[in-house]
Design a protein around this nucleic acid. Structure first.
Lengths: 149, 149
DNA sequence: ATCGAATAGTTCAACAATAGAATTAATGAG
DNA sequence: CTCATTAATTCTATTGTTGAACTATTCGAT
């Protein structure tokens, strides 16, 4: 009991430390990849829209766990930059679909590739077996986290 | 070659997805634990100062990978709330040490415990062996990320 | 010992992200 | 038809962030 509790606390602390370093470090590395005119959050929005065609502001808000007014702000900035268009739905005139422009597609896919290259460089420090085991546990964790929301 | 590249890309994609869910989900869960008057970033600053007594603004800036003016802003807010004090160094009058007040200590340790409880609930979904293997790889990753900055 | 470079911290202006309340417009259920 | 609901926007305020300019202090090379 005593020992288990101690182990648990130790694991939690180690997780907190490692998580902080990875999160902060990756954020900085991704930020360095961004062109002058794009923030990391804006890139993540473009990336989501590239892989979820015809999404709406509400879907983005749910995915990113923020209020809809945040999404309005961010898509307005992206629209002003000419990276996406607001396309009204034919059936329900309340809903607005978000569609990347050609330039939005281009820049998003370019940046996605760059980010993947950064991650590839990191993953190559691990042997295949360890990487797979890690990601499998990570996915379980993601599932547990999602369920706990 | 072809197969390895494909595996790598698949692993990267799985990592990106899982990482997003975990990061966003944990942020929301931690935010829910915060009292009215404290943001998550402010809590993280208090937590750092509790475990790194006598730190300075420069050390905080380096740790959080942000500019010093961001740190000035955040510690001014925490100081205004009475959660920390600026204590000038005796030797070098340029440096200001940051010291939690009693209330800062109290609230930080309280919140730290709550956050750890959230993490404990998550970790208990995994058997000991898997959790340890996961965290060991995670720490390796943190080391690689840190080295790549 | 002094003068210029470097360092620690702050200030200021600008911008991005966010929350939350109020608003508009359209849909849907009784 | 009316009223509640839904999708999106607007507006205000706050927080975090950057980068440049600034103050005060210390350090180092001559």
């Amino acid at each position: 009991m005593e020992k288990d509790l101690c182990l648990l606390k130790s694991l939690i602390h180690r997780y907190e430390v490692a998580n902080f370093v990875v999160e902060r470090g990756l954020h900085v590395k991704v930020k360095d990849l961004m062109p002058e005119e794009l923030t990391v959050d804006q890139f993540k929005t473009l990336r989501f829209l590239r892989h979820n065609v015809n999404s709406t502001a509400s879907e983005l808000a749910q995915f990113f766990c923020v209020g809809k007014s945040s999404i309005t702000a961010i898509i307005t900035r992206l629209s002003d930059k000419g990276l996406l268009d607001r396309v009204p739905d034919d059936g329900d005139r309340r809903v607005i679909h978000l569609k990347l422009t050609e330039e939005g597609e281009r820049i998003s896919s370019l940046l996605e590739e760059r980010v993947q290259n950064v991650l590839a460089d990191l993953i190559e420090h691990f042997d295949e077996k360890e990487a797979i085991a890690f990601i499998e546990t990570f996915e379980k964790l993601a599932k547990v986290v999602k369920a706990a929301l």
